[in-house]
Amino acid sequence: MAKVEEGIRDKLITALQPQYLQIENESDQHSGPPGRESHFKVTLVSGDFQSLMPVKRHQKIYALLADELAGPVHALALHLYTPDEWAARGEARPDSPQCSGSGQ
């Protein structure tokens, strides 16, 4: 696992003790040199989101990952659910759109 992704994972697990966490490095779907860690998609299910509206959930993650967002991470797609919301979705997260700058 790459360094930035590992740091993101550690911070999210420590702060939110997720029921489910998937971090996808989507950097290679965008233009730039291979092997970078600049674009991530995070799907996270946590009981900590129970009383939070979606914008507050996002703000919580942005605060946790402020160093990464100020540095190597250019884009962060967040899919944040309570356990009940996750179950209601059939435990499925949305696919990412194709990046127009990917050259594909």
Score class of each variant (00 low, 15 high):
Met1Thr: 10
Ala2Val: 01
Lys3Phe: 08
Gly7Phe: 11
Arg9Trp: 13
Lys11Trp: 11
Lys11Tyr: 11
Lys11His: 12
Lys11Asn: 04
Leu12Met: 07
Leu12Val: 02
Leu12Pro: 05
Leu12Ser: 08
Ile13Gln: 14
Ile13Asn: 07
Thr14Trp: 14
Ala15Arg: 15
Gln17Gly: 10
Gln19Trp: 09
Gln19Gly: 04
Leu21Glu: 06
Leu21Met: 09
Glu26Cys: 09
Glu26Arg: 10
Ser27His: 12
Ser27Leu: 08
Asp28Tyr: 14
Gln29Cys: 11
Ser31Thr: 12
Ser31Tyr: 15
Pro33Ser: 13
Pro34Gln: 14
Gly35Asp: 11
Arg36Val: 04
Glu37Trp: 09
Glu37Tyr: 09
Phe40Gln: 05
Thr43Phe: 01
Val45Trp: 10
Gly47Trp: 08
Asp48Trp: 11
Gln50Asp: 11
Ser51Val: 06
Ser51Cys: 01
Ser51Tyr: 07
Pro54Trp: 03
Arg57Met: 01
His58Asp: 00
Gln59Gly: 09
Ile61Ser: 05
Ala63Gly: 08
Leu64Pro: 04
Ala66Phe: 07
Glu68Asp: 11
Glu68Ala: 14
Ala70Phe: 10
Ala70Gln: 13
Gly71Val: 01
Gly71Arg: 06
Gly71Phe: 03
Val73Phe: 05
Val73Thr: 06
His74Gln: 07
His74Leu: 02
Ala75Tyr: 05
Leu76Asn: 08
Ala77Asp: 04
Leu78Ser: 01
His79Asp: 03
Leu80Cys: 05
Tyr81Trp: 07
Asp84Ala: 12
Glu85Ile: 02
Ala87Asp: 09
Arg89His: 06
Arg93Asn: 04
Arg93Gly: 02
Pro94Ile: 08
Pro94Leu: 11
Ser96Val: 06
Ser96Asn: 10
Pro97Ile: 07
Gln98Ile: 15
Cys99Thr: 05
Gly103Leu: 14
Gln104Glu: 15
